[in-house]
C-alpha cells in the first residue's frame, strides 16, 4: 500500500525541465508561418489553374460551335451527297436536332480542351500536400 502511494507520488511530482516555453512557442509560430506561406502559394496556384481551366473550357466551347457551324454549312462534298439517302442530308434534318448536335459537339470539344489542360498543367501536389 505504501509502495503504491510512493509510486503515485513519484508520478504526481513528475515535473521535468522542458526549457523555455516562449522560445518553444516562437519556434512553433515560425513553423506555422512556413505552413501559411505554402498554403497561400497553393491557393494562388489553385486559383490560376481554375481560371485557366475556365478559359480552356470556354475557348473549347466557342471553337466547337464554330466548327459545328462550319460542318453544318459545308456538310459533305456535292459528289457524295447525291449518293446518300435523303434522310441523311442536312437540309432535311430537324432544326432541334441540329442545335443539339452543335451543343453536344461544342461541349465535347470544351471537355477535351479542359482535359488537355489538366494533363499538361504543372503538378504541384507534392509541394502543397506534404505528408505531415
Amino acid at each position: 500500500m505504501k509502495q503504491n502511494e510512493t509510486l503515485k507520488a513519484m508520478l504526481a511530482n513528475y515535473q521535468p525541465n522542458l526549457g523555455d516555453s516562449d522560445k518553444y512557442i516562437s519556434n512553433l509560430q515560425r513553423r506555422l508561418d512556413a505552413i501559411e506561406t505554402v498554403k497561400q502559394m497553393y491557393e494562388t496556384e489553385r486559383r490560376k489553374i481554375r481560371n485557366r481551366l475556365i478559359v480552356a473550357f470556354v475557348s473549347g466551347g466557342i471553337a466547337g460551335v464554330a466548327m459545328a457551324f462550319y460542318i453544318m454549312l459545308h456538310p459533305i462534298a456535292p459528289i457524295t451527297m447525291d449518293q446518300l439517302p435523303a434522310q441523311w442530308m442536312v437540309a432535311d434534318v430537324n432544326i432541334i436536332v441540329k442545335v443539339l448536335a452543335i451543343t453536344v459537339f461544342s461541349v465535347l470539344i470544351a471537355i477535351v480542351s479542359s482535359l488537355f489542360y489538366q494533363i499538361f498543367k504543372k503538378d504541384y501536389s507534392a509541394v502543397t500536400s506534404p505528408s505531415w
Binding site: 522542458l18 516555453s21 518553444y24 512557442i25 512553433l28 509560430q29 506555422l32
Partner: peptide, 14 residues
C-alpha cells in the same frame, strides 16, 4: 490556436 496551445504545451510536452 496559439493562445490555447500556449496554455497546453507544457502538459503536452511533459
Amino acid at each position: 490556436f496559439i493562445e490555447l496551445v500556449t496554455a497546453e504545451q507544457e502538459p503536452l510536452r511533459r
